Simulated scan of single mutants.
Amino acid sequence: MPEKNTTYKSFKEFYPYYLAEHSNRVCRRLHVIGSVLVILMLIYVFISSHWWWLLSVPVIGYGFAWVGHFFFEKNKPATFQYPLYSLLGDWVMFWQVLRGQIRF
């Protein structure tokens, strides 16, 4: 199992660690809900041209994810140590949940 303080040279190396940090189903579900709400908010912003609502996107996305980590997974979000890999990991995991590769 990859360790938390490892320096990852690629996203491919990082992703198994990311998945291990999301083993709790409630945490994964909160990530998926946050991602769906981010997509819906982006659609709303572009349709309505209410650009200031873009400020809510990180709050929505990270808010649901962090609740999952702090209250259900009981770990520190990978975002704090690996912000870009973590963001990419969230969307890869979201896509894999949608495709049935990861259990919702």
Rank of each mutant, 00 (worst) to 15 (best):
T7K: 12
K9G: 13
F11G: 01
K12W: 09
K12H: 02
P16Q: 13
Y18F: 14
L19M: 08
A20V: 03
E21L: 00
S23V: 00
N24E: 14
R28M: 07
R29I: 09
R29N: 14
L30H: 06
H31R: 04
H31P: 01
H31T: 05
V32H: 13
V32F: 14
S35W: 06
L37F: 13
V38W: 06
I39F: 15
I39R: 06
I39P: 04
L42Q: 12
I43A: 15
I43M: 11
Y44L: 15
Y44M: 10
Y44H: 15
V45P: 02
V45G: 06
V45M: 07
I47Q: 15
S49T: 13
L54Q: 06
L55K: 01
L55E: 11
S56E: 11
V57S: 09
G61M: 09
Y62I: 00
G63A: 04
F64A: 03
F64V: 03
A65M: 02
W66L: 01
G68D: 04
F70P: 01
F71R: 11
F72N: 03
P77F: 00
A78Q: 04
F80T: 04
Q81I: 12
Y82S: 00
L84C: 05
Y85V: 02
Y85I: 02
D90R: 01
D90M: 03
W91E: 05
